[in-house]
Design a protein around this nucleic acid. Sequence first.
DNA 1: GAGATGTGCAATCTTTGAGTTGCACATGGA
DNA 2: TCCATGTGCAACTCAAAGATTGCACATCTC
Lengths: 111, 111
Amino acid sequence: MTAPALPVMCAALGDATRWEILTRLGEGPMSASALARVLPVSRQAIGKHLDVLREVGLVESEQRGREVVHLAVGARLGALARELDRIGRSWETRLLRVKELAERPEPDAVP
Amino acid sequence: MTAPALPVMCAALGDATRWEILTRLGEGPMSASALARVLPVSRQAIGKHLDVLREVGLVESEQRGREVVHLAVGARLGALARELDRIGRSWETRLLRVKELAERPEPDAVP
DNA sequence: GAGATGTGCAATCTTTGAGTTGCACATGGA
DNA sequence: TCCATGTGCAACTCAAAGATTGCACATCTC
């Protein structure tokens, strides 16, 4: 799967219920019904959240007998983290350059 | 400012227009009106997005004469990235442990 | 001082998304 | 075989979020 756009990835993580789900799935594989027993939402709602998370690669699902178990994919979260870190650094360096220019009184005009 | 909860941070980043805004602000300080001239949304809409971004610390604002200029805060994005990376790693290690147990045929019953 | 530009607040509209209920179907175990 | 459990699909409700328009006020510039 190709990496989804940043806003889509972040939107998938921008919901409290989905974080609850991810936290459980981070501890081990679970079925939608099992999640529904633990969390205060219906199985159908959880199913939709799992769709969203699977869409961006944060969750993988596997048929296991009668049920389907889901699991959180840490590697995908790590990839997102690296990308965000890269962007944050670029903002910082540009900020530094702007400040440097501001503090230098007469930086010479461009030839 | 104390770090906002993860879902809130991610929700702030989970919108395409806000990413547009952040991208511009990452290149240098801009006013809301200047952003509205560049982006295909009204100044008021941009103002609300800036509120959201400022709320989670991704943008800082400064009165400069008649106008208010805004700037993207890379450090905040870096902090989020580190936290996501930490969580992603924890998922991976748990996954490894589960697989280890699964591959070991008879790991002794709990006493 | 007059006009242009930038900002803030409020009311409104519209769409999206989270959540629910209901029903049909498959599958594992007694 | 019967029943409990798990899943999938569809229609519906409801609130929140993105976006717009309109107006009042401040401030820089000519």
